[in-house]
């Protein structure tokens, strides 16, 4: 459904996207993971026909994004990162307008339908300008879904939503992803884990890793880090933890807490807890550290370095 080969985009002298290659198939949710400025938005803008690439080719829903841009645009639903909306329009009128531009039959019924899908039916007659960030996000999503597109491209679809809405929107995307092709960008690792069948990690305009979510996790989480906190002075805490077999890289932090690592798959937390309590400390906290995106990047880039 999406086929990208050798895609490159230059902004003047700056190369925003560099020789990108990837595919996304029908019924697949593909996550685009990367820090700000990695080239996610630029790639999406090329795929939606907003801007042409400097080099390379992209086929979306069977059409070339440059040669047959209008055909592509008919078949793609797009939620831009900034969620641009006409703030001086009423929600219903706005969606009807977008539907009219897409020549949808029975556009008013369809607008009601998508408003129901995103849970905004009760705000249909309100001005967009009066809606909260989360509601606007959902109006944007409704706009992207309006014409039941074959391909859905969502740039940071859950940003700015409250936790309940995040769950709802993810549920919605998962539902849509069963039949359509969804490409979404995010900088939240857990979102990618939880939503996507496959993840592309992009940095400085290049894909640095591409794999299924499970594989990626296993590959990256070679080790797990844990923080231990005890009541009072933890001077000897590090030594105590070091006594447990299998513990590595023990470090004392500024606030007296201690961080350590163990090979993943072999949880040493119970042993550490027993050891700490046996030594007479009051255990306050034993917390695994999730791997942040930055750490994954550091991991990926340093791995790259070693290979070379």
């Amino acid at each position: 459904m999406i086929k990208v080969s050798g895609l490159t985009k230059d902004y003047g002298a700056r190369r925003a996207v560099h020789n990108l290659n990837f595919n996304a198939n029908k019924g697949e949710i593909v996550g685009f993971l990367g820090p700000n400025g990695a080239g996610k938005t630029t790639t999406m803008r090329i795929l939606t026909g907003y801007m042409p690439p400097s080099d390379g080719e992209a086929i979306v829903a069977g059409y070339d994004v440059v040669e047959e841009s209008l055909e592509v645009r008919k078949r793609v639903g797009y939620l831009p990162e900034t969620v641009p909306l006409y703030t001086d329009m009423v929600v219903f009128d706005y969606l009807k307008y977008m539907g009219d531009l897409r020549r949808l039959p029975d556009v008013e019924d369809r607008v009601d339908e998508v408003l129901d899908m995103v849970g905004l039916l009760d705000r249909a007659q309100g001005y967009i300008g009066n809606l909260s960030k989360g509601m606007r996000q959902r109006v944007g999503l409704a706009q992207a879904l309006l014409h039941s597109p074959e391909v859905l491209i969502l740039d940071e679809p859950t940003i700015g939503l409250d936790p309940n809405q995040v769950v709802e929107v993810r549920e919605l995307i998962r539902e849509i992803g069963k039949e359509k092709t969804v490409l979404l960008s995010t900088h939240l690792l857990n979102e990618a884990q939880n939503l996507c069948d496959r993840v592309l990690i992009i940095n400085k305009g290049k894909i640095v890793a591409e794999d299924t979510t499970e594989n990626l996790q296993a590959r990256l989480l070679g080790a797990e880090r844990v923080v231990v906190k005890v009541r009072g002075d933890g001077d000897q805490l590090a030594d105590t933890i070091k006594e447990v077999k299998g513990v590595r890289k023990v470090e004392t932090l500024d606030d007296g807490a201690v961080e350590f690592e163990f090979a993943s798959g072999k949880d040493l937390r119970p042993e550490v807890a027993k050891q700490v309590i046996k030594t007479g400390y009051d255990l306050l906290e034993l917390r695994p550290l999730g791997m942040s995106l930055e750490e994954i990047f550091i991991e990926l880039t340093s791995n790259d370095g070693k290979k070379k």
Partner: peptide, 13 residues
Amino acid sequence: MGTLELMLTAPVK
């Protein structure tokens, strides 16, 4: 406002 992006990705010449 950025709505140009909306128009330029809609099937409108």
